[in-house]
Amino acid sequence: MAVSFLGIRDFIVRVIPHSIKVSVGVGIGLFIALLGLKQAGIVIANPSKNVLNLGDLSSAKALMSMVGFFLVMFFVAKKTRGGIILAILITTAISIPFGLAKVPESLFAMPGSMEGMLFEIDILGALDPKYLPFLLAFFIPDFFSTLGTLLGVGSQAGYLDKNGNLPGIEKNFHVDSCATTFGSFFSCPVLTTYLESSAGVEAGGRTGFTAVVTAILFLFTLFLSPLATMIPTVATAPVLIYIGFSMMSSMKKVNYDDITEYFPAFICVAMTIFSFNSGNGIAAAMVVYAFLKIVTGRMKEDHWSVYAIALAMIYYFSVVASH
């Protein structure tokens, strides 16, 4: 919250090179697409070889996911209002006879008790110096993952300016940091901006009113959890696949005639996918960018803080590697 309200996060956003900012959305897009492909059973992990393989495309899960994917593309191509939601509902209905979705016995259920979770937190204990490396290891990915999500979703919505900045991004940082902090009092995982917000943008959401309506509907799901959990991953995975791949258009804004611009952009995309974290992608790209600017004698093209951030990212990676 301190770095957000003091404007530090906003400052860092502005000094991050344009090529890295526009490539963040692409890395996040491919990350979302890969997540969807895994949920659909089209891409699977091979533990014996520690690689990803093509799944069983003849399985009911993969086939139903592909049906959902083509439904999404059909409605999007036809520019059907609410087409993505419609595709999810149709896929869910078709999945019921195949046992991939189960009709709940009841539509309503009371939320569970918060006993044993509320205020189960030890702030002073966490500030013990021996835990500082771990705090950094948690802080950096959350810091840059939020940045990456905002830039990626903002780019998809067409809100980024010519320099790749998102006007009013500091307000998003304020909300994000408060949610992260106060959510911990309820023993929640980190409450942060979510990649799947791109689905809302794709459906036409462009203002804060979209988020308010979504929040209210999520509030109702506390009492409609049986109905919400009825929707299978084969219905939602196709949406992630489509939206993920549709976010790749940002790479056309990268200068491919300048290695100090396009190579860090590629690093950002690759590290986001391979490390499953957009924060790692941005961090690695900053290190490579600073190095290339130094060896080409073009340090003065950027603010000195770019190189300070790169040094901090080197330290971050050393902490992650050692722990």
Results as ranks from 00 to 15, higher is better:
S278L: 09
G164I: 02
I309N: 05
K79A: 15
F291M: 11
I309Y: 12
A199S: 14
L135S: 08
S145K: 02
G158M: 00
E261W: 06
G168M: 08
G152D: 01
G7C: 00
A228N: 09
G25F: 00
Y315M: 13
F143Q: 01
M299H: 14
A290D: 06
Q39M: 14
M110Q: 13
F182H: 07
D257R: 11
G148E: 00
F134C: 06
L160N: 01
K21T: 02
P17V: 00
L224E: 06
I309Q: 06
I94A: 10
C178W: 15
T236P: 04
L71D: 04
T236H: 06
G158E: 01
F223Y: 05
V213S: 09
S58N: 14
I88D: 03
A270T: 14
I121N: 00
W304S: 13
I259F: 13
S275E: 09
L34C: 05
V201A: 04
G148W: 00
L166T: 04
A290G: 07
A93R: 06
E301N: 11
L37M: 09
I85P: 03
A270M: 12
F185Q: 10
V254S: 06
S275P: 04
A235Q: 01
N255Y: 10
L166Q: 04
G148A: 01
I267K: 06
P47K: 09
T214P: 09
F185P: 08
I282A: 01
I20V: 04
L311T: 15
A270R: 08
V319E: 13
A62W: 02
F220N: 07
I85E: 10
T207M: 09
F108C: 05
A228S: 13
A137E: 10
V153F: 01
C268H: 12
A179F: 08
L86N: 07
G168D: 06
L118T: 07
T221Y: 10
L219V: 12
S95A: 15
P17A: 02
G55E: 00
A109P: 08
G7K: 02
A284K: 07
G154M: 01
F266N: 08
L107N: 09
A126R: 00
A321I: 15
I241V: 14
T192D: 11
